[in-house]
Design a binder for these strands. Structure first.
Lengths: 339, 339
DNA sequence: CTGAAAGCGCTTACAG
DNA sequence: CTGAAAGCGCTTACAG
């Protein structure tokens, strides 16, 4: 019932507290016999160092706070899952901060501070950064996933949106689309804005139309379907759409099917992220692949570097993306001329 | 750079440490003037109590460790998300324990202990319970989601699998299926076993065949598809299948489509959970609804009760389920006779 | 109502 | 190599 402490171990082993602490922190300077005695006593007693006490006195809690969105997108769940796993290998733990429902003084940044996290990762695209400075001020590194904010102490990692958007644009162009659309969240997030911009830029000069559509409200399937249905019911509807995420693309596909619009013959769709579902037979979505593992590795690298040197200047990492062609776009004509 | 502590606030306000502590813990006995002075000083300095120190000395850390699976199923992600949100309202935080990749001494239970969590919730169905006793011994309540283990200090909350399975069986029977199948994970989890048992029991006496199929390996869509494809390629294939989860059902639907088997005319499918995708137009899956919110509320209730009284006897809560009829089962004949 | 003191479980200089 | 002491930021009896 009572917690086994370092004191108990010291008593059992007949050594000092400091000695026990040293063997558990792998500090140099403990005789082999000492290590043995202590380890035996610890094992016998079932001793586990209190991370709270350790964190209070030491420099590290091994806690990383993650401010994530509502995980409406499968990508978010994947990211969370892999990140947790990867951090576990490094003996770090993920502390979750619900980005929804934050009271006045209840930001994920404050939570990170309260528990003396070693770092904060923000993957929620719409999370306000108002309180990030409180972290930076306290020497708590901030890692932004999916957006760029130039600020000391704040690193950023995000997809190469421009390149992804360009590949999408080129594929649609080469497969003969001429009235293009972009469906996003109305520029709500940094990624959304970059993807639209990149798409528009890649299209400029091609002479094709581009219409920007925005999903209003929540990104649940039903809402996406309704929005897509409206878009596709227009007689001047686009013949190709690039979506800011796969989730949106799924709704678009379903709306097209419901309207009897044949994909890819009459209509092309491209998503972003390449979540597992994109490869399902029900969708076979052509999309821009953003590797979760690559995101994780980049995050870990940035984190480690920052933990080693909290004073270094902020880093911005672009994560490469790849075009994955499946069934929602037409074949590129063999000898087709390029635009 | 240096953390603002209770000491700084005391100094600034010209009062004792104890005084500051009292107003922040809302302990009775602080004059209005005292409260005011302290609160002003705290605000001016941007003071936030260290949860580590609080946890070390007090009884609560407000940390709940969640041992979750790989979140392959959307239900897991939903559960995590909602739980985190709900706990945030109660000023509690979710500490994640990766159930995968646990070394010899690296169980989620130990992690919970290391950080002095107030409780552990285990939602990973396949997580070994070997070390749960270490928690119980230290007075750390354990809440099992999705399985029953009768042990002091361990509460359980799980779906009413028996009833869900019965509803599935009855629907398939009433809509004229005669060769039934159950697709699960080979009894890997408690839920899987209960669902099969409930299904089999409900069928017994009906004179219908029941074949039990098991997915080998990972539950990713491709693997499910292959397994379903094999099942449905058999000339004696079932004309109705009950799946232990929606994820499996999706793969079954896709396999049926690929084989040109018409749903629901020639073949019926029922899932379990009613994840959002089940309602998508691409699937329209008839399924057994398990309300995430209901799961969360049950978990919270059990948690609160246990936190109030750690000595009380274990509670087992069944979460009611509901049949949601969509398009993967046939209509019940109007005047059809019941079996 | 308010403050001084002990203690939570650890680590880290500092002596020996 | 080993131990005694101070301190991390808090709370909780205990006096006043």
């Amino acid at each position: 019932m009572k917690r086994v402490t370092i004191k108990d171990v010291a008593l059992e082993a007949g050594v000092s507290l400091a000695a026990v602490s040293r063997v558990f922190t792998n500090t140099a300077g403990s005789s082999a016999r000492m290590r043995e005695k202590v380890q035996k006593a610890a094992k016998d007693l079932g001793y586990r160092p209190s991370m709270l006490a350790k964190g209070l006195v030491g420099q590290r809690t091994n806690l990383i706070t993650l401010v994530s969105g509502r995980m409406a997108d499968p990508f978010d769940a994947l990211f969370l899952d892999r990140l947790s796993e990867r951090l576990a290998q490094l003996k770090m733990r993920l502390l979750l901060a619900s980005s929804a429902l934050q009271g006045p003084n209840e930001s994920g940044f404050f939570q990170a501070l309260d528990y003396q996290s070693d770092a904060v990762i923000v993957s929620a695209g719409t999370m306000s950064l108002d309180h990030s400075s409180a972290c930076v001020r306290n020497g708590l590194p901030v890692l932004l996933m999916g957006r760029i904010v130039e600020q000391p102490g704040v690193d950023c990692a995000l997809a190469d949106n421009r390149n992804g958007a360009r590949m999408a644009a080129e594929l649609l162009l080469r497969t003969g689309c001429s009235r293009l659309g972009y469906l996003g969240r109305g520029g709500e997030t940094f990624s959304d804005r970059e993807r639209f911009k990149g798409f528009a830029d890649a299209l400029s000069g091609s002479g094709t139309d581009l219409k920007r559509y925005a999903l209003k409200g929540s990104p649940d399937n039903e809402n996406v379907f309704r929005t897509a249905n409206t878009i596709l019911s227009d007689k001047h509807r686009p013949d190709g759409i690039f979506c800011s995420s796969d989730s949106l693309a799924f709704g678009v596909i379903e709306a097209a099917r419901a309207l009897g619009i044949s994909i890819p013959d009459d209509f092309s769709v491209i998503g972003f992220n390449n979540v597992p579902q994109a490869g399902w037979r029900s969708f076979q979505l052509t999309t821009i692949d953003l590797s979760v593992n690559h995101c994780i590795e980049t995050a870990i690298e940035l984190l480690n570097r920052r933990l080693e040197n909290s004073e270094r200047c902020p880093l911005i990492r672009r994560i490469p993306v790849e075009l994955v062609v499946r069934g929602t776009t037409r074949q590129i004509p063999a000898g087709g001329k390029e635009s």
